[in-house]
């Protein structure tokens, strides 16, 4: 069955087709939710809500862009909607350099560790870091998603980078000393 037919079947509320889509994309989307959320439970909630939204809106998919990209946007949007509801306060802009360098041996850094570091970031920093670094959105787009100034988005990103750098370095130094 072609992907397009699968999508159309999902729009007709075909259970098998929906399960197939879940099988195909569930892991990728759950990983996305893990990055954007601060723990596994929150990630699971976002993942479930996002997938329900995907199936409800699947008839609106116009077959023009990537289906995976479309689903990812819905997932991200689900997370951001919750964030908007929380109405986190704006943080004052600071001048921090664009590039942050970390002294690291990649083999010592596990994926689980990096994910944990991201999840531990304060919400605003986590969202901006994810959107900008991992999913390639611009500061302009992020500013509109989060309803913040572009400068704030940049500042949040820099803060996120510094926190991550410090944490990575501290873990690595712990590992060496330990």
């Amino acid at each position: 069955m072609s992907l397009n037919k699968l999508i159309k079947q999902c729009a007709l509320n075909d259970k098998t087709a929906q399960a197939t889509v879940y099988e195909l994309y569930g892991s990728k989307l759950f990983a996305l939710c893990l990055k954007y959320s601060n723990n596994k439970q929150e990630a699971q909630d976002n993942f479930q809500d996002g997938f329900i939204t995907i199936f409800h809106k699947i008839e609106q998919f116009n077959f023009k862009g990537s289906f995976e990209g479309w689903m990812k946007r819905i997932m991200v949007n689900t997370v951001l909607q919750k964030y908007r509801k929380k109405n986190v306060l704006n943080i004052v802009t600071e001048n921090i350099p664009d590039e942050v360098i970390v002294d690291v041996d990649e083999d010592e850094v596990s994926l689980d560790m990096l994910l944990k570091l991201i999840q531990e970031l304060p919400e605003r920093y986590r969202l901006v870091f994810n959107l900008y670094v991992l999913d390639g959105y611009t500061h302009k787009e992020i500013s509109s998603f989060l309803n913040i100034a572009e400068g704030t988005s940049k500042s949040n990103l820099s803060r996120a980078r510094f926190i991550l750098k410090e944490k990575v370095e501290s873990i690595l130094s712990d590992q060496i000393s330990g």
Partner: peptide
């Protein structure tokens, strides 16, 4: 010395977790 963005991008590129 590694750019922190690059570190995360590379590690999390094909990141998948079974729900």
């Amino acid at each position: 010395e590694k750019n922190i963005d690059r570190l995360f991008q590379e590690k999390l590129k094909d990141f998948e977790v079974l729900p």
